[in-house]
Design a protein around this nucleic acid. Structure first.
Length: 513
DNA sequence: AACTCAGTCAACCGCCAACGG
DNA sequence: TCCGTTGGCGGTTGACTGAGT
């Protein structure tokens, strides 16, 4: 054993660790105690002391070594950083699973949890958990995976002595204010049901009201930069049946792939916002990934369809219609129709959506002065466009597209040729020619506007769910919502512009006539 | 380049229980 | 039994960092 004098560190040099350690300390009684980050010099003093004397008697360290740290601080430093048996680095997937499981059993008993994780400190586990809770809270998601929810309650039955906790220690499944999150519109958003509609076991689970957190990956996670967050598939028929235990939760460490998530009813589409890859950009994109309709395509797929247009040619509204890309909407807005048209789609403008169709029509009108179109009743056109609700999906209320050519609900050219005078040659395109009575011409012009408005409304309605969801994402501070909203606003603003142009066009022509 | 923001980490603070005088 | 000390624990805070804007 060494004497106290031997424990004292040398004080005779500029680089004296002790001098460094004391520097900047606070006065506590007649001893200046330092706060803040530990220096390597202080660490070396502490390590040296504990190596010689063992752990404990922490207050003696300050007395014996002159280290300007209180006993508490020394103990904490040793326990959390200097202990030789500490495991450095990120938590492994197994450790993360275990932490979640242990927390479900124990609650915030960090020390007990640390005892189950060799080499890990309570502080480490606490920090990890708090970060996790914070992240999930922001996303409005439950802390625990759904099946763990059940599992944990089972494990905390009274007959389980080893895991019995008081009510205060019981798993806190209501830790999050999530259930009280006030996002009225979003909360009732039927997407929530649809995410899990394929899993009756999960239906009604209050913790599944919101999308899986996989959709809200943290923008950066130094420990797991490549991991978007866990993908709790819950009762995912694909995943959960593979392994019955807790490890079934899918932590693949990578962004979802078509294969790993394609049929998960719990898989939410928002991950596609994040993914940004061409392979998944929107709900149900697994259908796109598969390149063909999937029998497992969830019912919500149709609901999530954006207003435009990203379906394959001639497949408007068909049940097998691949779901649209968000990105493609942006592309459509920014890209001239001609550039968008691949040979496969060149036969019709209808495959590219409303904006595409509108742009296409305008081009057609410009270059075509010779077309002769069949006269169509304005009234019947209106009926075809909007009013007919008999074809709506009784469940979703969504009006399926039946027009195989155009997103406008009817032949796109017809839309313009029926009533829209676009220029001085409007007589080629409208059913009411300048030869007709001025009143008829006026009526045709206003009907054109009206029709355009209805079409816009129709598409706007399809956008609303997306806006709702994006708004919800905003309310929970999800950064990806901004991009979604921005894109959707682009769509809406373009639609509005088209409408206004139609109005102006009519007014001008009316004036000329 | 400056700014913002979220995540991580380390450390401190306060409370409490155990212990010993 | 009381009281002071010590150590353990959980909550909180602030510095730092990196990504995004």
């Amino acid at each position: 054993m060494t004497s106290d004098s031997e424990d004292m560190m040398p004080m005779n040099g500029e680089d004296s660790p002790l001098e460094d350690a004391i520097d900047g300390g606070n006065v506590s009684g007649n001893v200046s105690l330092k706060k803040g980050p530990w220096t390597t010099a202080e660490d070396s003093i502490l390590v040296d002391y504990v190596t010689k004397h063992g752990e404990g008697n922490w207050n003696a360290i300050q007395k014996h070594t002159g280290l300007a740290r209180c006993g508490k601080s020394c103990r904490l430093r040793w326990a959390n950083h200097l202990r030789p048996d500490l495991k450095k680095g990120a938590f492994t997937l197994e450790e993360e699973n275990l932490i979640i499981e242990l927390h479900a059993k124990m609650g915030n008993k960090w020390a007990k949890m640390a005892a189950e994780l060799p080499g890990r400190t309570d502080n480490e586990i606490k920090n990890y958990w708090n970060t996790r809770v914070k992240r999930r809270q922001r996303a409005g998601l439950p802390i625990y995976p759904p099946d763990l929810h059940v599992q944990s309650f089972n494990e905390n039955q009274p007959d389980d002595d080893s895991n019995s906790f008081s009510s205060m220690e019981a798993p806190h499944f209501d830790l999050l204010p999530y259930n009280n999150l006030e996002i009225p519109e979003f909360k009732g958003f039927d997407l929530n049901q649809q995410f899990y509609s394929g899993d009756s076991k999960l239906a009604g689970d209050p913790y599944l009201t919101y999308p899986n957190e996989s959709c809200f990956p943290s923008s950066h996670s130094p420990k797991h930069p490549e991991r978007p967050e866990y993908f709790y598939h819950g009762s995912n028929p694909v995943v959960s049946n593979v392994t019955p235990d807790f490890s079934q939760h899918h932590y693949d460490g990578y962004l979802p792939t078509a294969h790993s998530f394609q049929f998960s009813p719990a898989y939410d589409y928002s991950s596609n916002y994040y993914n940004g890859s061409s392979s998944s950009a929107f709900p149900g994109s697994h259908v796109i990934l598969n390149g063909k309709p999937s029998s497992s395509e969830p019912a919500w797929a149709m609901k999530l369809e954006l207003p435009s247009l990203q379906t394959e040619m001639g497949s408007w509204g068909s049940p097998s219609t691949p779901l649209p890309y968000l990105e493609s909407v942006d592309t459509l807005i920014q890209t001239p129709p001609n550039e968008l048209c691949t040979p496969a789609c060149s036969l019709s403008p209808g495959n590219s959506g409303l904006l595409d169709a509108v742009l296409y029509e305008s081009q057609i009108m410009k270059i075509s002065n010779t077309n002769s179109h069949q006269q169509t009743s304005l009234a019947s056109g209106l009926d075809d466009d909007i009013v007919d609700t008999s074809s709506q999906d009784p469940q979703t209320g969504w009006e399926p597209y039946v027009e195989p050519v155009s997103p406008l609900g009817h032949s796109s050219p017809a839309m313009f040729t029926e009533s829209t005078p676009s220029n001085g040659n409007s007589s080629q395109f409208i059913e009411v020619t300048p030869d007709n009575k001025p009143l008829d011409f006026l009526k045709a012009g206003f009907l054109t506007c009206y029709k355009m408005l209805l079409v816009l409304i129709k598409y706007h309605v399809k956008i609303i769910p997306c806006l709702k969801h994006a708004t919800g994402m905003l309310l929970i501070n999800d950064p990806s919502a901004l991009g979604v909203l921005r894109m959707e606003c682009k769509v809406l603003s373009c639609l509005l512009t088209v409408f206004l142009l139609a109005v102006v066009s009519d007014i001008e022509i009316l004036g000329n006539s």
